[in-house]
Computed example of a mutant assay.
Amino acid sequence: MNLEFAKMHGLGNDFVVFDGVRQAVELTRERIRAIADRRFGIGCDQVLVLEPAERSGVDFAYRIYNADGGEVEQCGNGARCVALFAREAGLTDKDRLRLETLGGEIMPRILPDGRVTVDMGVPHLEGADIPLSEPGEWVRAPLEVAGERRRITAVSVGNPHCVLEVEDATAAPLSTLGPVLEHHPLFPNRANVEFVEVRSPDRIRVRVWERGAGVTLACGTGACASVVAARLWDRVGPRAEVELDGGNLTIEWAGPEEPILMTGPAVITFRGVLGQWPASRPATAGP
């Protein structure tokens, strides 16, 4: 089976993107993990599949799989990439698209300078909507984590996020605290974790532990959730530049019941053909 794909990235958050409109794409958890493997496969943070829309008024559906093989609800950097992919692949000539995901509809718009703005919808703060195992809103709420009390803010941007303010994002304990919070009982579907350093009323520095992928250079929904949280803390205004390890995103959020707008780049790195599924990682392979 030959499958055409594109390797893409948004600020270093990288993807293998399949056209599921013109070719049949059959993925299993094992196949996704093999594709995502950076030594034995193509290598990526997520695998994205663009598919025909199931509902009228929607241009395409797209599915998102993390490197561990699990399907997830939303991916902001992925949304920018699949919008550009659809146009570059000749699947549409539109600059504005409506995409259907497990986390709801999103609306990307390709700008003349090649960047993409995505209407990510209205963020959710209620525990039942994120979801959380506890009711109510969690804004700077104390949470017992690894024997310490941490103040966290929980936000859904179509997927669950746990946001913490830190003095120095560069020194944030991503690899130690990130997985603990990802799997904390408060988050029944696990969580993406953001460590936020507020630098000014219109600029924040964010580092990300991404659910199912670990430390990533950028996370679009994480940037959105971080600005929402910082607004709720009265630390930033309605528009903020978000500095991620892979580059910057511009996030706009006017406040409760208003949609989030995310603007940033999308890049096609190369195209290829998957002639056979990558071999599984050998049991004797090193770390």
Rank of each mutant, 00 (worst) to 15 (best):
F187M: 04
A191C: 13
G158A: 10
V157K: 04
L174H: 07
D168S: 10
V196E: 04
R190E: 08
R203N: 08
V180I: 12
S200E: 15
T153A: 00
P185I: 06
L132E: 05
T170P: 00
A171F: 02
P142Q: 08
V157T: 12
E182R: 11
V198S: 10
V193P: 02
A171M: 11
F187A: 02
C162Y: 06
P123M: 01
L181E: 07
A154F: 04
L186A: 13
N159Y: 10
E194L: 00
V139P: 00
I204S: 11
P179W: 03
N189R: 08
R199Q: 02
N192M: 06
V139A: 01
V163A: 06
V163E: 00
D202K: 14
P188T: 09
E126C: 11
G136S: 14
R199F: 02
R151C: 09
E197H: 13
R203H: 10
P131K: 13
G127V: 08
E134S: 14
A172F: 10
V155C: 06
A171H: 13
V198A: 02
V145R: 09
T153H: 01
R140D: 07
V145F: 05
H183S: 14
R151L: 12
P185V: 12
H183C: 07
S133V: 04
P179C: 06
N189K: 15
E148L: 03
L125Q: 12
I204D: 04
L177K: 09
A172H: 05
S156R: 05
A128G: 03
V139I: 13
E126T: 06
S175Y: 09
A169V: 02
V163G: 01
L181Q: 07
D168H: 08
L132D: 13
A191R: 11
P160V: 05
A154R: 09
V180K: 09
G178N: 05
A169K: 11
H161M: 01
A154Y: 04
G147Y: 11
H183V: 02
R151D: 06
V206L: 04
R203E: 14
G136N: 14
E134H: 15
I152S: 00
A146P: 02
S156F: 09
I152C: 05
R205C: 02
A191Q: 12
A128L: 14
E144F: 12
G158F: 09
T170D: 06
P185E: 10
L143I: 11
N189D: 12
G147T: 01
G136P: 07
A169E: 04
P201T: 13
E182M: 07
E167S: 13
E137I: 01
E134K: 15
S156N: 09
